[in-house]
Design a protein around this nucleic acid. Structure first.
Lengths: 233, 233, 233, 233
DNA sequence: AATGAATGAGTCTTCATTCAT
DNA sequence: TATGAATGAAGACTCATTCAT
């Protein structure tokens, strides 16, 4: 079998896994189902992916790749200020998380694992099969790529004047990322209907984005109509 | 057996569960272990908690209670401005999440369930035993309590001038909460040692807090030295 | 507590057990439920009935008593011929079995146990707790009562001329009983809708009763000698 | 593995189940035992049969198949009148029920389920796993086969003059079946030694058969009109 | 008589993984 | 490469029964 055929089958399994993990969760999905849905034998699934953890790490890798391409698409946009890029990022990130909750969960899960990994004392709590997975090793190398692109956006914003010059790009971007991640999670409590709390999902998003922008640009330009942006689009 | 004795045993099981879930995760903990560690029979565990999901929901409830008491302690502090309270909250939240990662995970997990619960189309994806759990039902009622306290803090800040008056308390607080939650999660990637990225956990925290404060206070008070904060960090 | 009070409580438990066994089956009913439904503690249930088997035997005893009273009511009827009594019995038996399926099942179950009991080789297959039950011992003594009454009916029928004189009362009655028992069970298959088979429950009952009567009274119309059969047996 | 090998293993498990259910009853038999006795792993048992209920339904299916072959063997007999066939059936049925009590119990149990199934109100009382079982679905289709063959026997008897022509084949056969089923069950009480009742198993069988034959063929000797009865019904 | 907390053996069932073919 | 029968360890949960109070 040609290499491309091999990759094709591997991708098939991966796609099936993503679909199943999305609809039934990791724990709720069995390797049997993955094989059956992919139309291949269970044995073959294990030929392509060492074990279930390995498969999940492959899925996580895919999630990071997808996310990275979101970042890349934005940074390639011409005529956008750094601030606009980050605003755009926020919106696309939410879309990304909504369209494929599974991806977002996988990314969050990986970040959790990373916390354990960073501390030698807790590293042992990570499932050995995860540590063995080549996809996990690969993730260790590439998981910062999105961060790097995001930091670039902030740097660009500082350069083009859309972002306060005194901000540190690294810290700033990770703070924004934190906001985005947290936002996604808080969708649950916020969306919960309760009379006492008057926020609605519709109100929240614009308010959230506005706050983020305020945080970055300060209030200096806020008086006059948003010239900066108008000039950009 | 007196009521208190009953509650004592219930608490014992709960505490054991928290300890085990913390060190081995929910999936990694067996009911057998819980019973054995608590020094009681398996049957008794099921006498006090309907099933594993119910036990987890009880743990989650405890987590929310603990978190609420953090909020409450802060709001009771005398002589603090709203902004100071939120700053304090950030720090105590991190401490809370670090000291008992389990609690934070449980809270995040509950928020994820809530997302499914809010949409009737996805509600069916929630494990039936969770929906049945009386602790889950209780959580549905009280999960907003922290939010309410946080919103109060923002309102106080607006009143005392430490926070920009044009901000909406609800949106603002949930945005802050989002930041905090995301921050906690990003501890993983940020803490990962890599040469290219120069952030360190030590740098990140103060930077993060600073950004949050900037976001809230705007530039009005920025003229006079922020005595309050400088004295704090 | 007075003796009557004791009996009252015992009866209460029994009634609850009957209700529960009826709706959920023996295996599907837990002692917990029995106690809770009766509004007493589990311990007390065990005070009145040694164990679940014992309780079931008590229920079976009750079933036989009820059945016996059906027999007795019939035999006390004035102006009925033996054949009429047996016809009446058939109808009342069906009613009895229908109204309280549980009773009929219990009786059938007891008969099954008796089969094992009769043979020393199979007696060991009976659950020891059943053999120990005082109610089981009692059943051993009284289970023939219905049979005796039924046999009396046949005898009466022979005496009053409504039943063929050459029939043996014992064999005849047990054959009728067999018919009735089997009828009840066949309600399932017969009631099942299928185009090919044209019987309906409505047709079946009268036909069945008619056949039974024919069996007992012979057929008047049998003018021509049934050559075929006589040669065979 | 060839299809036949698969079927062979499936049959092996089935045979073991029959043996165990026979000696220890359905409830008394564990899936563990089935596996162990069959010399295979527990998992494999579940590979071939979805669950315990499914296995029991498979056993029931086998029981009906066996019974059907009894019917078929009889109907294929040359030179037998319809009445003779039914007489033969009675004897072979008893043999069948005696040799493998389990089969008979399974059939009776299925008939009981059918009663619940026929009524939409009670259908919910049937264990869901039973309804799901493909063997149960199959039983729904084939359980009438024996009945059809039996009805054929009666029809043949009417045609060849061995059975009264005025009888309805359907009703008549089901009545006979009822007798047979009931007979089997009454073996318990009848076989129980008691002085007062003089029936013995030895007396009962021939008497029972004779009555059945009388019912079908009428009595040649019934020269004198049975005045009593005609006036009654 | 009465309670109900406590026991623990027992059962079904699942599923990741392997391996002979 | 590819199959799928086979494994077996593991885990959740039940429930009849007991006993200290």
């Amino acid at each position: 079998m040609a290499v491309s055929a091999r990759e094709k089958k591997s991708k098939l399994i991966l796609d099936v896994a993503i679909k199943l993990f999305t609809s039934k969760g990791y724990a709720g999905t069995t390797m049997d189902e993955v094989a059956k849905t992919a139309g291949i034998s269970k044995g073959l699934t294990y030929f392509y992916f060492k074990n279930k953890e390995d498969l999940y790490m492959a899925v996580t890798k895919k999630a990071f790749d997808e996310l990275k391409s979101v970042f890349r698409d934005i940074i390639k946009m011409k005529g956008k200020s750094g601030l606009q890029m980050l605003t755009e990022l926020t919106h696309l990130y939410f879309e990304f998380a909504m369209k494929n909750r599974m991806y977002n969960d996988a990314i969050l899960n990986f970040m959790g694992i990373l916390q354990l990994y960073n501390n030698i004392l807790t590293r042992g709590q990570i499932h050995p099969l995860i540590l063995e997975s080549e996809h996990f090793q690969r993730l260790l190398e590439i998981h910062h790529d999105c961060g790097k692109l995001g930091i670039q956006m902030v740097s660009l914003g500082i350069k083009d004047g859309s972002i306060r010059p005194e901000l540190q790009p690294e810290v700033t971007f990770y703070t924004i990322w934190a906001m985005i991640i947290g936002y996604e999670r808080l969708t649950g409590p916020v969306g919960f209907e309760e009379k006492e709390i008057k926020i609605h999902l519709d109100n929240w998003r614009p308010g959230f984005v506005k706050l983020m922008q305020d945080m970055l640009k300060g209030t200096i330009q806020a008086q006059k109509p948003q010239i900066v942006q108008t000039s950009l689009f």
